[in-house]
Write a protein that binds this DNA or RNA. Structure first.
Lengths: 163, 163
DNA sequence: TCAATTCCGACGAAACGTGTCAGAAATCCC
DNA sequence: GGGATTTCTGACACGTTTCGTCGGAATTGA
């Protein structure tokens, strides 16, 4: 229903790396939609799922991470729903993505805090992965939620001095 | 044999995103090892796999992409093996990774050349993904193969003027 | 001719991503 | 209190991808 798979696009061996999952896509769109729809009362998940055309039950599951990270507040019961826990311009997208996906780390090698690889001696390669990791995190943190919630203006970043 | 899985490390929901696969890890280590071992005659896959302790048959399969991309030359038959097709300091790691993984794209949204999303209208979110994509590619291209093949020096980058 | 080596396709097992579902718990309103 | 609404939680199912093995064909040097 959704996978066109253009035959001219050679399917090398899977094609597509360093990807965020649908989880991230949905989670980010949830946050943006919530920012736009938040006007005091909590916004229900159904409203957001309808608005953004997202699978509601799946979204429900994804949102847990955002709540646990303290990015959104929830209220149960009738007329319940979600609210941003902080103003949108104080929420860096890096926080959102890390809440959704866990630590952003391009190679298992870097996951264990203490020891990089077991081949620590001359593993110059880990320099490459850590540079990538830092770049991704910087890129994510250069956006705030407010930046993405603005209707359409080309690329007005808010408060990043660099880059 | 390799997954310790420290129980204190809460397994949020899979933990680890934006990751390169083993394919990349192995492929990069192959290239680095080849750079170090290349002294005129072709180096056999078995030698490299032994040296780097990589699964040989799997590596064989991975290398196809590197050959097709013109990064390495191969010679079949007895005393055959692989050689770098170009000097190591002229090979950007971005080329290597793209040869291994296909285009580096953080979200399916950006994969199709023409249309970004089907929700093209107000999809401000795609700005985020494309910034990340550019950052990753820049980070990868800021290293050459020669940088990684040097024994150990901290972080001496060669020919990147920026950053 | 024989041994070494790359090349290629098929196969299998395990992990992961993407959802669905049912039901429990909380909250509001009458 | 009772019923409607909504979040919360865990289990499950299904397809795809990753990781790797295997066997054999093609190529080359001695």
């Amino acid at each position: 229903m959704n996978e066109l798979q253009d035959p001219t696009q050679r399917d090398l061996h899977g094609s597509g790396a360093v990807t965020f999952s649908m989880r991230s896509e949905y989670g980010v769109r949830f946050m943006v939609a919530l920012t736009r729809m938040d006007h005091g009362e909590p916004v229900s998940l159904t409203d957001i799922a309808d608005q953004e055309d997202l699978p509601r039950a799946y979204l429900e599951q994804i949102i847990g991470g955002l709540r646990d990270a303290g990015l959104i507040d929830s209220q149960r019961g009738a007329h319940g729903g979600y609210r941003l826990a902080r103003p949108a311009n104080e929420v860096r997208m890096g926080e959102v993505l890390r809440a959704l996906e866990g630590p952003i780390v391009p190679m298992a090698c870097l996951a264990a805090a203490g020891s990089p690889c077991n081949r620590a001696d001359n593993c110059t390669v880990s320099q490459l992965w850590s540079r990538v990791r830092d770049s991704v995190n910087e890129a994510l943190d250069s956006f705030t939620l407010a930046d993405l919630a603005k209707p359409s203006s080309p690329v007005a970043l808010s408060s990043s001095t660099k880059h």
